[in-house]
Amino acid sequence: MSNATTLTLEPAVGSRLRAVLRETEYEFIRLVRTRAFSLSVIGFPLVFFLLFGLRAHDAETTRYLIAGYSCFGLGSACLFGIGLGIAMERAQGWLELKWASPMPRLAYLAAKMVSSAAFALIVTALLIGLGITLGDATVSLSQGLRLAAIILLGSVPFTALGLLIAMWVPPNSGPGIINLLYIPISFASGFWMPLRLLPHWLQAIAPALPTYHLAELALAVFGLAPRTGALTHWLVLAGFTLLMFAAAWITFVRKEHQA
């Protein structure tokens, strides 16, 4: 009996895994070919970094913006890749066709999350590369890996937020709405410049933003933020993730019910 179970289960697990890998591979290819996505998600942080991050004899600014723009790239990749991506496929009826197929449910979300995280890591790698070669920054291997790990883990809360956005945002006005929310939030979280340079009221709001906690973790890699708060930052991000997933799930079930 146990033999029969393993015999029937193994191909099923194998084919599921194959489906997840295929889904991820083609989602990544799709995003690369979608120029509006790939050029802006990679292009914006790089251009801003070239403009503001490479001042001579200012290694601290360079390293600050490597961390900050890595977070910014991660947010754009997830909000546009996952949030707008799902919103559009939902509106076009494409999501429904996929839902009618035996596609493993998790493969769809996993593919979008892994692909967006891959874009974010590309941004991080390019920023470090530019910072070292064109700027005065020194980034050790361990710092680079720690930053990459934070960006990778940070893709989870952003995926959850992207999912919630996908449930609400109308696909046509999606890019505008996402930018309108995301750009100010990224400023107020310290992605662009140290919080101490921002108005006091903004500094007071910042700890309420999950993105602030992500930025603090990324900046701490270069000693630009205190390391002592790391546990709190991770807990806030974990709580935010659960909250977003729950809100997205409730919205999804409600819309299903109305349909």
Binding site: Y26, R30, R33, W94, E96, L97, A100, P102
Partner: peptide
């Protein structure tokens, strides 16, 4: 049951890039 079903639905647009 799902692996035994194939479907063609009315789709407004198909992702262009693949």
């Amino acid at each position: 049951a799902r692996v035994a079903i194939g479907a063609m639905l009315q789709v407004a647009r198909v992702p262009d890039m693949l």
